[in-house]
Design a protein around this nucleic acid. Sequence first.
RNA 1: UGGGGCGUCGCCAAGUGGUAAGGCACCGGGUUUUGAUCCCGGUAUGCGCAGGUUCGAAUCCUGCCGCCCCAGCCA
Length: 570
Amino acid sequence: MSHEETSATDRTGLDFVRTAVAEDRAAGKNDGRVHTRFPPEPNGYLHIGHAKSIVLNFGIAEDFGGVCNLRFDDTNPTREEVEYVDSIQNDIRWLGYDWEDRLFYASDYFEQLYAWAEHLIREGHAYVDELSAEEIREYRGTPTEPGRNSPWRDRPIEESLDLFHRMRAGEFADGALILRAKIDMAHPNINMRDPALYRIRHAHHHRTGDTWCIYPTYDFAHGQSDAIEGITHSICTLEFENHRPLYEWLIDHLPVPSTPRQIEFARLNLTYTVMSKRKLLRLVQEGFVDGWDDPRMPTISGLRRRGYTPEAIKAFCRRIGVSKTNSTVDLALLEFSLREDLNPRAHRYMAVTDPVKLTVTNWPEGQVDWFEAENNPEDPTAGTHSVPFTGSLYVEREDYMDDPPRKWFRLGIGREVRLKYAYFVSCTDVVRDADGTVTEILCTYDPETRGGDSPDGRKVKGTLHWVSRDHGVPAEFRLYEPLFTQEDPDDIGPDADFTDGLNPQSRTVLQGVIEPALAEAAPENPVQFLRLGYYVNDARDSSPDRLVFNRAVTLKDSWARVVRNRRENE
RNA sequence: UGGGGCGUCGCCAAGUGGUAAGGCACCGGGUUUUGAUCCCGGUAUGCGCAGGUUCGAAUCCUGCCGCCCCAGCCA
């Protein structure tokens, strides 16, 4: 990037984090070097909110010719598991980012962190406290009242050192002792009121095993880990803003090899979605969804299984921008990003998800007519595939209506429509069962309209998709809607639980048919079912014997809008 | 009632004293063998509110109001 591009007068388009990074470079900080990191705690699966952070951190490194590390923030052995460290790496790679040989763990630094804790004690900046957790809380004061010094605060340095060594040696039970920084119990920022640095936890750690029974807190581990790795910009979310003074205090009081700068941005919220790991974990554990990768989950693995592409997710993350304003992004923007990505490249096929028979009564018995269907009208180089037409078809149940309203372009008795690629057909009658439900639509076709055009210039407004009953392959379709009925799932009464707002219609399973060419192609990438939406083979449940498709997103549907507006106006 | 942040169109978001970018959504219209895509056009006399400074303010000053975060030995 040239000086012109980074100058203070030409920063239009740069978000505030990039602006800060550019200014630091211009000021010559870190010799112009830019080094970021993505620091997940392995206590859950990554979600779309993490994607925002990943795109930001890896994106900034890329933009400024730097690199980005992956570092697991694994300082709390009681909540962290290897399943999560594996899934996290998997998801980041799938998004298309590469940390190369820079995979780290905060636990890699436990020995160094321990030495730095000793350093703080020797310098008189930390002490071992014997107050209980409850007492510490009482002594801490409140936001409006200052706290009080612990009676152990001014104990001799040698005594704290000895106790700290014995904490490590395992002489004490969980919670009996704790190492605290000695800062200021009257500080207006509660994080500066002698914060905890090391606590006793006799727990097995997923990487260090039983080597340790004391573990550093987030505050004592994060900034120093950044410094060890030479991180120049430590980008995190807004709730850590209050921790920045402590982050800087520790960097100032320790002989660390570099001085990273913490910058905070607003985390992502999405309408109709919960994003907290705690809540997502509950959805999984209590069986409201089928796992972390359930296609309704906002997790990266859920979105992938749903049919979202890395490109769509990344485009979405760039489009929403980065700021410090708490915001909730419209789910429609995520959906738009997927359609935008898929439209030019997803192959088109026909599928009928809710089939009703359509019989062409004047079709020559046993005749099969083959048509060439374009794989993608947006891309002529995508080629074509063949689709068989017969007099025995399936069409979408919702494409027929008794006494249709104005502007209905589809089937109804006396109506003529085009069957995509094939012929014009006119509906002459329907067959019903005892309940009056339509079981078969009867039509006649016009042989002159082969290919879908009428030589007499006759126009038809509607074009329907269809599948031959003699050739169609059975398939299951899983249609998804938002997991929650309310735009803000957390906007509930004091006595309600967020799970009360779960959408009972979040998943609808339908049995239908697909055209034979698709069954043979078995593509792994999402396809577009004409007029329906983008679908992908379910990575878990679909097999050649039993095809299962997940609906990633519908197509924009202006007919649905007409219906909706009409209803609202009545 | 302490400290730290944030308030620009329905949802995001540029803008950093010279007279309100862009995207999504929405509303019109055109093209169309997907009511899709694509293409045109429309939508903030206004930047939380009230004062003030200035030739000129979303941008500076003052005072209010609203929302978010902090009293884990979670991150």
